Computed example of a mutant assay.
Amino acid sequence: MSDPVVYDRNPAEIELEPGEYWWCSCGRSMTQPFCDGSHEGSGIEPMPFVIKEKTTVWLCNCKHSKDKPFCDGAHNELPDDLF
C-alpha cells in the first residue's frame, strides 16, 4: 500500500444534499474530494459516507485526518514540504 498524496492543505467546504458519497482517501482523484477511481493499484480504497440531511461539511484534502472523511485540523500539524 502506498501513502496518500496530499491534495491540498485546506479542507473542501461543500454543501451536500442527502445521499451516499465516496471520499477520495488516496489523494489521486481529479474530482477532489470525491473518488474518480484513480486509486486503482495504490492499495488505498475510497471511503463511503452518508449525509442524512442537507448540510455544509469540511472534507479533508490533506488525507491525514483522524476523523476521515471530515477535517480535524491535521493539516495544521503537517510539515510544509508536503504541500
Rank of each mutant, 00 (worst) to 15 (best):
G43W: 03
G41D: 05
P69W: 02
D72C: 02
W58A: 11
K66V: 04
M1A: 15
P33W: 03
W22C: 05
L59G: 01
K68R: 14
F49G: 07
A12Q: 10
T56H: 04
D81N: 15
N10Y: 14
C62L: 05
V57S: 00
V5F: 05
V5E: 05
F83D: 10
E15P: 03
D67I: 00
T31I: 04
A74K: 08
L16Y: 12
N61P: 05
W58H: 12
D36G: 11
A12I: 05
P18A: 10
G19H: 09
K63F: 04
G37H: 03
A74T: 12
E40R: 15
D36S: 12
D3T: 13
K54A: 10
F34C: 10
T55M: 13
M47G: 05
I14M: 08
F34K: 08
D81H: 15
D72R: 00
Y21V: 07
E40W: 11
C60T: 07
V50S: 08
C71I: 08
F34N: 08
D8N: 15
G73H: 10
K54V: 06
W22R: 13
D36Y: 08
G73Y: 10
V5C: 00
S38K: 10
K52H: 10
D80W: 13
W22L: 15
E20F: 06
F70N: 04
M1H: 12
G37C: 07
R28G: 00
P4M: 06
P79V: 03
E53H: 09
S38N: 12
L78G: 03
S25R: 14
D36H: 09
I44P: 00
P46R: 02
S38F: 08
C35T: 01
L16D: 10
S25F: 00
L82K: 14
Q32H: 11
I44S: 01
D80I: 09
K52I: 05
C60K: 01
D67R: 12
D80A: 15
E13S: 15
D8K: 15
E53T: 10
I51A: 03
E20A: 11
P11M: 06
E53L: 04
T31C: 08
F70A: 01
C24A: 11
W23A: 05
E20L: 13
I44N: 00
T31H: 13
G37P: 03
E20N: 12
G73P: 02
P11K: 02
D72N: 04
N76L: 14
K54S: 11
D67A: 14
C71Q: 00
M47A: 08
C24T: 07
T56M: 09
P11I: 08
D67K: 14
S29F: 03
D36Q: 12
C26S: 07
C71L: 03
W22N: 12
K66L: 12
H39I: 08
V6C: 11
C71P: 02
K68D: 07
L78I: 07
W58L: 09
K66S: 13
T55G: 04
M47S: 08
P11A: 12
N76H: 15
